[in-house]
Protein backbone atom coordinates (compact mmCIF):
# COMPACT_ATOMS: atom_id res chain seq x y z
CA UNK A 1 0.00 0.00 0.00
CA UNK A 2 2.75 2.38 1.02
CA UNK A 3 4.47 1.77 -2.31
CA UNK A 4 1.45 3.02 -4.20
CA UNK A 5 0.97 5.99 -1.93
CA UNK A 6 4.61 6.88 -2.58
CA UNK A 7 4.00 6.56 -6.30
CA UNK A 8 1.04 8.82 -5.94
CA UNK A 9 3.15 11.40 -4.12
CA UNK A 10 5.93 11.27 -6.67
CA UNK A 11 3.55 11.58 -9.58
CA UNK A 12 1.57 14.34 -8.01
CA UNK A 13 4.73 16.37 -7.28
CA UNK A 14 5.82 15.87 -10.85
CA UNK A 15 2.43 16.60 -12.37
CA UNK A 16 3.43 20.05 -13.57
CA UNK A 17 6.74 18.73 -14.93
CA UNK A 18 4.87 16.10 -16.93
CA UNK A 19 2.40 18.69 -18.19
CA UNK A 20 5.17 21.03 -19.25
CA UNK A 21 7.14 18.39 -21.15
CA UNK A 22 4.04 17.05 -22.93
CA UNK A 23 3.03 20.64 -23.69
CA UNK A 24 6.37 21.61 -25.17
CA UNK A 25 6.89 18.40 -27.12
CA UNK A 26 3.46 18.58 -28.72
CA UNK A 27 3.95 22.22 -29.73
CA UNK A 28 7.40 21.53 -31.12
CA UNK A 29 6.28 18.48 -33.06
CA UNK A 30 3.22 20.27 -34.41
CA UNK A 31 5.38 23.10 -35.64
CA UNK A 32 7.94 20.71 -37.09
CA UNK A 33 5.18 18.83 -38.88
CA UNK A 34 3.35 15.70 -37.79
CA UNK A 35 1.78 12.97 -39.97
CA UNK A 36 -1.90 13.72 -40.66
CA UNK A 37 -3.34 10.94 -38.45
CA UNK A 38 -1.36 12.19 -35.43
CA UNK A 39 -2.27 15.78 -36.17
CA UNK A 40 -5.96 14.93 -36.52
CA UNK A 41 -5.86 13.04 -33.25
CA UNK A 42 -4.38 16.06 -31.50
CA UNK A 43 -7.01 18.35 -33.02
CA UNK A 44 -9.69 15.99 -31.72
CA UNK A 45 -8.38 16.19 -28.14
CA UNK A 46 -7.35 19.86 -28.31
CA UNK A 47 -9.55 21.48 -31.02
CA UNK A 48 -7.99 24.95 -30.56
CA UNK A 49 -4.63 23.62 -31.82
CA UNK A 50 -6.10 23.57 -35.31
CA UNK A 51 -5.64 27.36 -35.41
CA UNK A 52 -1.93 28.02 -36.19
CA UNK A 53 -1.98 31.39 -34.42
CA UNK A 54 -3.01 29.70 -31.17
CA UNK A 55 -0.04 27.38 -31.41
CA UNK A 56 2.28 30.39 -31.63
CA UNK A 57 0.60 32.01 -28.62
CA UNK A 58 0.83 28.84 -26.59
CA UNK A 59 4.47 28.40 -27.52
CA UNK A 60 5.38 31.89 -26.35
CA UNK A 61 3.17 31.97 -23.26
CA UNK A 62 3.52 28.78 -21.27
CA UNK A 63 1.53 28.93 -18.08
CA UNK A 64 0.47 25.88 -16.03
CA UNK A 65 -3.00 27.40 -15.91
CA UNK A 66 -3.54 28.15 -19.58
CA UNK A 67 -6.13 26.12 -21.40
CA UNK A 68 -3.72 23.75 -23.13
CA UNK A 69 -1.70 23.05 -19.96
CA UNK A 70 -4.86 22.50 -17.91
CA UNK A 71 -6.28 20.11 -20.50
CA UNK A 72 -3.01 18.15 -20.62
CA UNK A 73 -3.09 17.92 -16.82
CA UNK A 74 -6.70 16.69 -16.84
CA UNK A 75 -5.94 13.93 -19.33
CA UNK A 76 -2.94 12.97 -17.23
CA UNK A 77 -5.06 12.81 -14.06
CA UNK A 78 -7.60 10.58 -15.83
CA UNK A 79 -4.82 8.32 -17.06
CA UNK A 80 -3.27 8.17 -13.60
CA UNK A 81 -6.61 7.36 -11.93
CA UNK A 82 -7.42 4.66 -14.47
CA UNK A 83 -4.51 2.64 -13.13
CA UNK A 84 -6.50 2.15 -9.95
CA UNK A 85 -10.13 2.51 -10.92
CA UNK A 86 -10.13 1.52 -14.60
CA UNK A 87 -13.08 3.12 -16.36
CA UNK A 88 -15.01 4.07 -13.21
CA UNK A 89 -13.95 7.69 -13.58
CA UNK A 90 -15.80 7.69 -16.91
CA UNK A 91 -19.05 6.75 -15.18
CA UNK A 92 -18.51 9.49 -12.63
CA UNK A 93 -17.63 12.09 -15.28
CA UNK A 94 -20.63 11.17 -17.39
CA UNK A 95 -22.78 11.47 -14.29
CA UNK A 96 -21.57 14.90 -13.15
CA UNK A 97 -21.21 16.48 -16.58
CA UNK A 98 -24.08 14.71 -18.35
CA UNK A 99 -21.73 13.49 -21.07
CA UNK A 100 -20.72 17.01 -21.97
CA UNK A 101 -19.49 17.28 -25.57
CA UNK A 102 -17.70 20.62 -25.40
CA UNK A 103 -14.50 21.67 -23.69
CA UNK A 104 -14.17 24.51 -21.21
CA UNK A 105 -11.20 26.71 -20.32
CA UNK A 106 -10.25 24.29 -17.58
CA UNK A 107 -11.42 20.86 -18.73
CA UNK A 108 -11.47 18.87 -21.97
CA UNK A 109 -14.87 17.63 -23.09
CA UNK A 110 -16.11 14.61 -21.17
CA UNK A 111 -16.61 12.79 -24.46
CA UNK A 112 -12.91 13.13 -25.26
CA UNK A 113 -11.83 12.20 -21.74
CA UNK A 114 -13.89 9.03 -21.93
CA UNK A 115 -12.49 8.14 -25.39
CA UNK A 116 -8.95 8.77 -24.13
CA UNK A 117 -9.32 6.41 -21.17
CA UNK A 118 -11.18 3.75 -23.11
CA UNK A 119 -8.47 3.76 -25.79
CA UNK A 120 -5.87 3.34 -23.06
CA UNK A 121 -7.75 0.47 -21.38
CA UNK A 122 -8.32 -1.21 -24.73
CA UNK A 123 -4.61 -0.77 -25.51
CA UNK A 124 -5.38 1.34 -28.59
CA UNK A 125 -2.55 3.77 -27.99
CA UNK A 126 -2.49 6.65 -30.43
CA UNK A 127 -0.06 9.56 -30.63
CA UNK A 128 -1.23 11.26 -27.45
CA UNK A 129 -1.30 8.16 -25.25
CA UNK A 130 2.15 7.16 -26.43
CA UNK A 131 3.38 10.69 -25.77
CA UNK A 132 2.12 10.61 -22.16
CA UNK A 133 3.55 7.18 -21.48
CA UNK A 134 7.01 8.07 -22.80
CA UNK A 135 7.11 11.38 -20.89
CA UNK A 136 5.82 9.82 -17.63
CA UNK A 137 8.38 7.03 -17.86
CA UNK A 138 11.12 9.56 -18.56
CA UNK A 139 10.26 11.73 -15.56
CA UNK A 140 9.10 9.22 -12.95
CA UNK A 141 10.78 5.99 -14.17
CA UNK A 142 7.36 4.40 -13.71
CA UNK A 143 5.01 2.91 -16.25
CA UNK A 144 1.33 3.62 -16.49
CA UNK A 145 -0.12 0.22 -15.71
CA UNK A 146 -3.06 -1.57 -14.23
CA UNK A 147 -2.55 -1.43 -10.48
CA UNK A 148 -5.90 -2.75 -9.27
CA UNK A 149 -5.82 -6.51 -8.85
CA UNK A 150 -9.04 -8.17 -9.93
CA UNK A 151 -10.84 -10.40 -7.53
CA UNK A 152 -14.19 -12.09 -7.67
CA UNK A 153 -16.67 -11.76 -4.89
CA UNK A 154 -20.39 -11.68 -4.42
CA UNK A 155 -20.14 -10.48 -0.84
CA UNK A 156 -21.63 -7.05 -1.57
CA UNK A 157 -24.63 -8.70 -3.19
CA UNK A 158 -25.02 -10.68 0.04
CA UNK A 159 -24.64 -7.48 2.08
CA UNK A 160 -21.25 -8.47 3.43
CA UNK A 161 -17.88 -6.68 3.31
CA UNK A 162 -15.48 -8.14 0.75
CA UNK A 163 -12.54 -10.19 2.01
CA UNK A 164 -9.45 -8.43 0.75
CA UNK A 165 -6.12 -10.19 1.14
CA UNK A 166 -3.87 -8.15 -1.12
CA UNK A 167 -3.34 -4.37 -1.00
CA UNK A 168 -3.79 -4.16 -4.76
CA UNK A 169 -7.27 -5.60 -4.34
CA UNK A 170 -8.22 -2.56 -2.25
CA UNK A 171 -8.38 -0.50 -5.44
CA UNK A 172 -10.69 -3.09 -6.96
CA UNK A 173 -13.24 -2.46 -4.22
CA UNK A 174 -14.10 0.81 -5.91
CA UNK A 175 -14.53 -0.95 -9.24
CA UNK A 176 -16.65 -3.65 -7.57
CA UNK A 177 -18.79 -0.99 -5.89
CA UNK A 178 -19.42 0.75 -9.21
CA UNK A 179 -20.35 -2.60 -10.76
CA UNK A 180 -23.02 -3.12 -8.11
CA UNK A 181 -24.22 0.49 -8.38
CA UNK A 182 -24.55 0.30 -12.16
CA UNK A 183 -25.94 -3.24 -12.06
CA UNK A 184 -29.44 -4.52 -11.69
CA UNK A 185 -30.76 -3.51 -8.28
CA UNK A 186 -33.54 -6.06 -8.49
CA UNK A 187 -30.96 -8.84 -8.73
CA UNK A 188 -29.15 -7.31 -5.77
CA UNK A 189 -32.38 -7.20 -3.79
CA UNK A 190 -33.15 -10.80 -4.73
CA UNK A 191 -29.73 -12.05 -3.65
CA UNK A 192 -29.84 -10.06 -0.41
CA UNK A 193 -33.44 -11.05 0.39
CA UNK A 194 -34.65 -7.45 0.31
CA UNK A 195 -38.39 -7.37 -0.26
CA UNK A 196 -39.04 -3.61 -0.37
CA UNK A 197 -38.26 -1.55 -3.45
CA UNK A 198 -34.81 -0.04 -3.03
CA UNK A 199 -34.09 3.48 -4.17
CA UNK A 200 -30.74 5.01 -5.14
CA UNK A 201 -30.25 6.27 -1.59
CA UNK A 202 -30.47 2.71 -0.21
CA UNK A 203 -28.12 1.21 -2.80
CA UNK A 204 -25.61 4.05 -2.50
CA UNK A 205 -25.59 3.65 1.29
CA UNK A 206 -25.10 -0.10 1.13
CA UNK A 207 -22.27 0.07 -1.41
CA UNK A 208 -20.52 2.92 0.38
CA UNK A 209 -20.74 1.21 3.77
CA UNK A 210 -19.51 -2.11 2.45
CA UNK A 211 -16.53 -0.53 0.69
CA UNK A 212 -15.65 1.35 3.89
CA UNK A 213 -15.89 -1.78 6.03
CA UNK A 214 -13.96 -3.91 3.55
CA UNK A 215 -11.07 -1.44 3.68
CA UNK A 216 -11.36 -1.14 7.47
CA UNK A 217 -11.31 -4.91 7.95
CA UNK A 218 -8.23 -5.25 5.77
CA UNK A 219 -6.34 -2.70 7.90
CA UNK A 220 -7.54 -4.16 11.20
CA UNK A 221 -6.61 -7.73 10.24
CA UNK A 222 -3.23 -6.65 8.90
CA UNK A 223 -2.35 -4.78 12.10
CA UNK A 224 -3.62 -7.58 14.33
CA UNK A 225 -1.85 -10.37 12.48
CA UNK A 226 1.42 -8.45 12.21
CA UNK A 227 1.54 -7.85 15.97
CA UNK A 228 0.43 -11.40 16.72
CA UNK A 229 3.14 -12.86 14.51
CA UNK A 230 5.72 -10.94 16.55
CA UNK A 231 4.42 -12.80 19.63
CA UNK A 232 4.23 -9.61 21.71
Amino acid sequence: MLFYIMNLGILSKKKHAITRVVYEEIINQLKAGLPDPDKNELFKYFPYLAVPQHIDDLEKNYDPYNIFALHITEYFCDLFASQYIHDCSNSYLEYITQNQGVFTDTHPSTVNRVIFINDHLEKKDGYLLKKYKVVIKGITKLDIEKRAKDFTSNNFENLLPAEVTDPQQLHSLFIYGWKVWLGNWETLAQMAGIEFKMNSFNVYGIVNNLIEKSIGNYIILKEWNEVKSQKV
Binding site: P161, A192, I194, E195, F196, G205, I206, E212
Partner: peptide, 11 residues
Protein backbone atom coordinates in the same frame (compact mmCIF):
# COMPACT_ATOMS: atom_id res chain seq x y z
CA UNK B 1 -35.71 -6.73 5.00
CA UNK B 2 -39.40 -7.38 4.46
CA UNK B 3 -39.84 -3.62 4.98
CA UNK B 4 -37.71 -0.51 4.64
CA UNK B 5 -35.15 -0.27 7.38
CA UNK B 6 -33.81 2.85 9.03
CA UNK B 7 -30.42 1.24 9.47
CA UNK B 8 -29.00 -0.88 6.62
CA UNK B 9 -25.51 -2.37 6.61
CA UNK B 10 -24.36 0.35 8.97
CA UNK B 11 -20.64 0.36 9.64
Amino acid sequence: FFKKRKYMCQV
